[in-house]
Every structure is written in structure tokens, then in C-alpha cells.
Design a protein around this nucleic acid. Structure first.
Lengths: 211, 211
DNA sequence: GTCTATAGATTGATAGAC
DNA sequence: GTCTATCAATCTATAGAC
């Protein structure tokens, strides 16, 4: 087990700094000095700052989204085989849990979670578009499964409720890494599992609310 | 009715640009050229870029938060007088509606809504802390009223649910101004009233979900 | 692959004339 | 209050030695 090479050290440092300080507020100098690498090495290994953030995002998102897609398709198939609609809560669990599981998988994984949680709120198109490209097919699939789970709710209402749910998930993701906003004394840093157990019923109840 | 003076033109331009491009990605030159003002005028009128964003936030947030506080206190008082708990949905309406009403009040108000919606997701402390300082007392009061509305739900659960609700609200606010994420064809730009009518039942159902 | 050195542009802030 | 001019620092990116 050799020590991580320059390219990986840069990716790790960029992931942490982009998450902590934001894309535009993080310079290549910040990254290379944190990674103990030379300033020129970023452009040698990645070509540009934009290509770097793109690789930072893709490296983690691709495997997570693969798991999400598999789980969502399995839920869809099982429901069709049984001839009964899938459960909305199961669908959301398939979407959220892989991200939370990843968070516990590595000591520094939480930085990436914060980065992703903020991506949809990024004012600049650079980061947001990279994220959108990766997440869009998963959102489409999630919407499909939710539609099957709640066929009595008009598509337009369902769309907005999914939108609200994504807001809850994003906000929770980027807050799980920094200080909570309010009542910090009754919300010490908890493990993701407990937060997931609280988040899923909230979302499910919101999705299934009477019209 | 004279044309707005330089200071106001700078505030308006800064509000729009900070919302569109983000704080760090907007330069003072961007702002002054949009405001048809001289570069040096920002430092003359405000002192620094940070003091400018601070005034951009405070100018709109202070009156909105005043209305929120009054409405929340009125709900609290009415419930106490009647000897019955307040309604969670009414409390959230008191919190959300003033922001949505403001959105329809002026042609360019929507920029500010996006700016606020993103504030909690700002990685940099500068913007986030300015916003926190303004919003914290309102959050505290909202939490109080919600606690009285749902006394059977443990405080810790209530805290997290409020956190999830704030995520939905923030995400909706900064998305109401740009393109929606998914299924754009079934979600054309709508007026805030309709979104509020969809958002309130979602949040209320989530807050009141069985344990 | 890693380094030094630097180009070329942009940043926030300020000094000083008017 | 508004302007020009500029400073000192910082930025991304690249050229070229090793």
C-alpha cells in the first residue's frame, strides 16, 4: 500500500476545499499547497480548474448513482411482478441511503456530501451543470417510481412535492458536515442512520399528504 | 419622484448580481458598471464589498422579518387566549408568506428571494453569517410556536423536522427564480401563491407525521 | 512528472484632482 | 460625491528546464 500519488492527493484536497470554501473561493494555490503538490501539477493532471471539479464530482457520484439506479429499478421490477404499486418510502430510501452509507465509508467522505448538498444551490453554472448531468437520469427514474407509488396524485403536484423533498435532502446533506443552524444543543453531530430514520417519514408524509 | 441615487442603484445592481452569480463570483466592477456608477463609489458609499452585501441583505430582510415576528406572536397570543394549541400550518404560513408576498411586490424582488434561498447553503461564512444574524430570532420564535402546536412530538424530532422544512423552503426560494430542475414542461414559472398552496400541506404533513 | 518562473488578466481598495 | 489612475495582491494557465 503505497502513499497516494499526486493526482489523488489533489483530488482529495480539492474535494475538501471546494466543499468548505466553495468553488470560486478556492484557488488552485489553496489546493496544491494543501495537497503538497506543485501549482503546475493541477493543469498537468487535469487541464483546468473546471476539469478538476468535474473529476472531483464524477469520481464519487458515478458509483453512488449506479447503486441508486439499481435499487430503484429493482423496486420497480418487484412491484410490477407483484402487480402492486411500490412504496414511496422505499423509493426515497433507495435514493438517499447510498449517499448516507458512503458518508460512513471513509473518514473524509463527509466533505463530498456537503459539496453535493450545495451543488443545486450553486449560483454559477459550472458546478451546477456538472452535478445536473450526473443526477438527472436518477431523478427521472425516481420520479417514475414515485408516480407509480402514488398514482392518485396529479403529476404536477407530485413534481412539486418531489422538488420540496429534494430541498430537504440537499439541505440536510450540506448541514450534516457543518454546525447545525438552530438549537444546536439538542442536535449534536449524529450518525447518518439516525438522520435517515427521521428524514424518510418526513418526506413520505409530505409526498402522501391529502390534496 | 427623482431617479434613484447612486447608492440605491448600487444596492439594486448588487442584489441582482449577487443572486445571479454568487458573492465571490461577482466583482465590484460588475456591480458598478451595471449600476452605471464609478468603481470607487462602492467604497465611498459602503466601505467594502462585505459591508455592501450586508446592507443588501438587511434592507429587505429587516422588514420581512418584522412582519413574520408580528404574525407569529399574534398566532401564539391567540392560541394562549383561546387555551388551545396553535396550528402548525398557520405558523409556517406566517413564516413563508411574507417572503412570497414580497416577491410579487416589486419587479426585481425575485432576485433577492434567490439570494436568501441560497444563503444557508453559502460555503463562505461572510454571507451565511450575515443571514444567520438576521434570521436566528425568527427561527427561534417559529420553533417555539411549532412546539406549542405539536406538543406530543419530542423536541429533538421536532428540531430535525423543522430543519427538513427549512430545506424545502430554501430550495424552493432559490429555484423560483431560475429554471426548475426536472420535468420543466409540467412546471412553468408559476406565481408564488400556487407554490405556497402546494408547499404548506407538504411541510405540515411532514411535521405531523406519526412517530 | 515535477519544478521555477512568469505571463496576462482581474481583483478589492485607495489617493488625490475636480 | 464623482471621477481617473493606480497600487499591491491574487488569480488561472503556460513555457521550458530538469
Amino acid at each position: 500500500m503505497s502513499k497516494p500519488d499526486t493526482k489523488h492527493r489533489i483530488l482529495d484536497a480539492a474535494e475538501r476545499l471546494f466543499a468548505d470554501k466553495g468553488y470560486h473561493n478556492t484557488s488552485l494555490r489553496n489546493i496544491t499547497s494543501a495537497a503538497k503538490a506543485n501549482l503546475a501539477s493541477v493543469n498537468y493532471h487535469f487541464g483546468s480548474k473546471e476539469a478538476l471539479i468535474s473529476e472531483v464530482m464524477d469520481r464519487r457520484l458515478a458509483p453512488i448513482n449506479k447503486i441508486r439506479t439499481e435499487r430503484l429499478k429493482a423496486i420497480q421490477q418487484t412491484a410490477r411482478d407483484a402487480g402492486s404499486p411500490p412504496l414511496a418510502e422505499e423509493a426515497f430510501c433507495a435514493f438517499i441511503e447510498p449517499m448516507f452509507t458512503f458518508r460512513e465509508s471513509a473518514p473524509n467522505a463527509r466533505h463530498f456530501i456537503a459539496l453535493v448538498g450545495r451543488s443545486l444551490a450553486e449560483p454559477d453554472g459550472t458546478v451546477r451543470n456538472i452535478f445536473k448531468k450526473q443526477i438527472m437520469p436518477v431523478f427521472q427514474l425516481l420520479f417514475e417510481v414515485i408516480s407509480e407509488a402514488l398514482p392518485h396524485i396529479p403529476e404536477k403536484v407530485l413534481y412539486w412535492r418531489l422538488h420540496f423533498a429534494i430541498g430537504s435532502v440537499s439541505h440536510t446533506m450540506h448541514c450534516l458536515c457543518s454546525k447545525p443552524m438552530i438549537h444546536t444543543e439538542c442536535a449534536p453531530p449524529q450518525d447518518s442512520t439516525e438522520v435517515l430514520r427521521l428524514l424518510l417519514p418526513f418526506i413520505t408524509a409530505g409526498m402522501e399528504a391529502p390534496l
